[in-house]
Design a protein around this nucleic acid. Sequence first.
DNA 1: ATTTAATATTATTATATTATTATATTGTAA
DNA 2: TTACAATATAATAATATAATAATATTAAAT
Lengths: 101, 101
Amino acid sequence: MAVKPISIPKISQKCDDVSALLRILSHPQRLMIMGHLSHGAKTVSELQELCTISQSQISQFLSRLKLEGLLDSRREGRFQYYFIADKKIVRLIQAIQEIYC
Amino acid sequence: MAVKPISIPKISQKCDDVSALLRILSHPQRLMIMGHLSHGAKTVSELQELCTISQSQISQFLSRLKLEGLLDSRREGRFQYYFIADKKIVRLIQAIQEIYC
DNA sequence: ATTTAATATTATTATATTATTATATTGTAA
DNA sequence: TTACAATATAATAATATAATAATATTAAAT
């Protein structure tokens, strides 16, 4: 029977993954975007207004957040709606809000 | 009667603070340190073993975590014990662990 | 088929972060 | 008071991240 591998690699793999996630959230405006999206999908320009950031930056932030799997998007007419891709992310954002807001 | 100031500055102040906190946690080994410390105080060398990082790095990480207010320390004989400084940080780490571990 | 609003991409510069190596400090036991 | 174990600091080179400005794409209305 095979020996069960020790779990250190798993733990450190998880730290890698989770810390990468936290890194993406560790930016004031990306965090604010996620905070707003935790209440439901929004268009790019809505978010741009809510967060008062430049067009270029909101777009870059959103595309990075999507690329990294935190967000997804759908088109509706001329608007692109972004929303949180994953239930766990929502839970994390909500936990952060409960603790710090 | 004075007009109540709008809350945008407050929200964005919070995003600044919380994102700064997340930034510190957004490093695999710092996160692992915090994970271990969420179960109780440990010495520098215990943490060094648990996290398999160099002496210099563990010391730098710990001193940064302390500087930023996430950790505190006390001396006991020849050992320096580090522990999580603040109940909220413990809650955050635990929430992260519940969601992702 | 043009125009326009909405969104995305690219390139560049400026800053910040990290790992590494070497060296210094501190406390305690012999 | 020296020696050693435990911990801290400093300096630097390598790498990653961010902000900005300019330009490009896309979809739909005219």
